[in-house]
């Protein structure tokens, strides 16, 4: 790795620690949220250093992008409502407890983790990759070996969107105060780029880092940016329209794939021989679209209008 690499890692770790500290302790909430977003971006660098490019892509798009947008828009709501004193952080007491307790915990964890042999499943994944239908191992794990996790995870996303709808209507106006006048134009300009990048990542996913998750995340982040740029949210909650179908599509397809295996007399989620490749591609498209749309739905923070928005977007 070389000395330069080690120095870089140490600096990165120090920066991450400082940002995490700021995110939990900064006096100003806005400062804390921004620290957290930068923390997410730097984490993406750390993932690259740890040879996990798929996670780096997802972290940049979801961890920093989508979560950041969610946090900032929530802050916008809170800041206008909560009084200033509530935002200020009361310095926590109990240092006498936290310094020794934290130190002890840190010691125990580090000691435990330091001795880990980390045998890993690299060889097993490699051996099974040939019959998994894809060449990229992460995709093989996500949509073949551990497809059940992915099914439940898309379920969690859909459930989160339904839960948020159940809390109330989406606030209006939805668009937070514009931090920069250039954002709308930039957002419109960038959206096609986001779509292209997402499509490219999805296509790449079968043989290289990429695939449904980063693609969906990038597309979702792009859609949120469009919303920030003043586009009208186009999702409707009407029973008659197609939106409820489209949001559920990923989970429906994954469930159908699972049950199909059983009906064919095989195990749940077992793909018939020779069809794994195309089936996984199909599921990836569905999962990626679901992730993108559901991320966008999460951002709305409430049930969208049933039949269309009164008034025009900006």
């Amino acid at each position: 790795m070389g000395v330069a690499g080690v120095i870089f890692d140490v600096l990165l770790a120090l920066a991450l620690t400082w940002l995490a500290w700021q995110a939990t302790r900064a006096a100003d909430l806005f400062h804390a949220v921004v620290s957290f977003i930068v923390f997410g971006l730097l984490m993406a660098l750390a993932w690259v250093r740890l040879e996990a490019p798929d996670i780096a892509l997802a972290e940049a798009a979801i961890g920093a992008g989508a979560t950041g947008a969610l946090l900032l828009s929530a802050l916008d709501r809170l800041a206008s409502r909560e009084r200033r004193r509530r935002l200020l952080y009361e310095p926590g007491a109990a240092w006498g407890f936290w310094i020794p307790a934290g130190g002890a915990l840190l010691g125990a964890l580090t000691l435990a983790a330091w001795k880990l042999p980390a045998p890993g499943l690299g060889n097993e994944v490699r051996a099974a990759l040939g019959v998994s239908g894809v060449e990229h191992p992460v995709t093989a794990v996500l949509l073949n070996f551990r497809a059940l996790d992915t099914l439940l995870e898309i379920g969690v996303l859909l459930l989160a969107a339904i839960t948020i709808w159940s809390l109330g209507r989406a606030p209006s106006p939805l668009i937070p105060a514009m931090p920069s006048p250039a954002l709308p134009a930039l957002g419109r300009l960038l959206f096609p780029v986001f779509v292209l990048v997402a499509a490219y990542l999805l296509w790449r996913g079968s043989h290289a880092p990429g695939g449904a998750f980063p693609a969906g995340a990038v597309l979702g982040a792009g859609a949120i940016l469009m919303l920030l740029a003043g586009a009208r949210p186009w999702i409707r909650s009407s029973e008659r329209g197609p939106w409820r179908w489209i949001l559920s599509l990923g989970l429906v397809m994954l469930l159908a794939a699972g049950i199909a295996g059983t009906l064919a007399g095989q195990a749940f989620f077992e793909y018939p021989p020779g069809t794994a490749g195309p089936l996984i591609l199909l599921l990836e498209v569905a999962a990626g679209l679901s992730i993108a749309l559901l991320l966008f739905a999460l951002y709305l923070r409430g049930e969208p209008c049933e039949h269309g928005y009164r008034g025009k977007g900006r």
């Binding site: 989508a66 980390a118 890993g120 994944v125 551990r146 992915t150 995870e153 989160a160 999460l298």
Partner: peptide, 28 residues
């Protein structure tokens, strides 16, 4: 853990990708 394993282990990568999506859901 994935990085320490020999050869590089992709299972934790998939696990973390799943985890990130779940975390954004719960955060939302």
């Amino acid at each position: 853990m994935a990085r320490l394993a020999e050869p590089l282990d992709n299972v934790p990568h998939a696990i973390v990708l799943t985890g990130i999506v779940i975390t954004v859901s719960t955060t939302a």
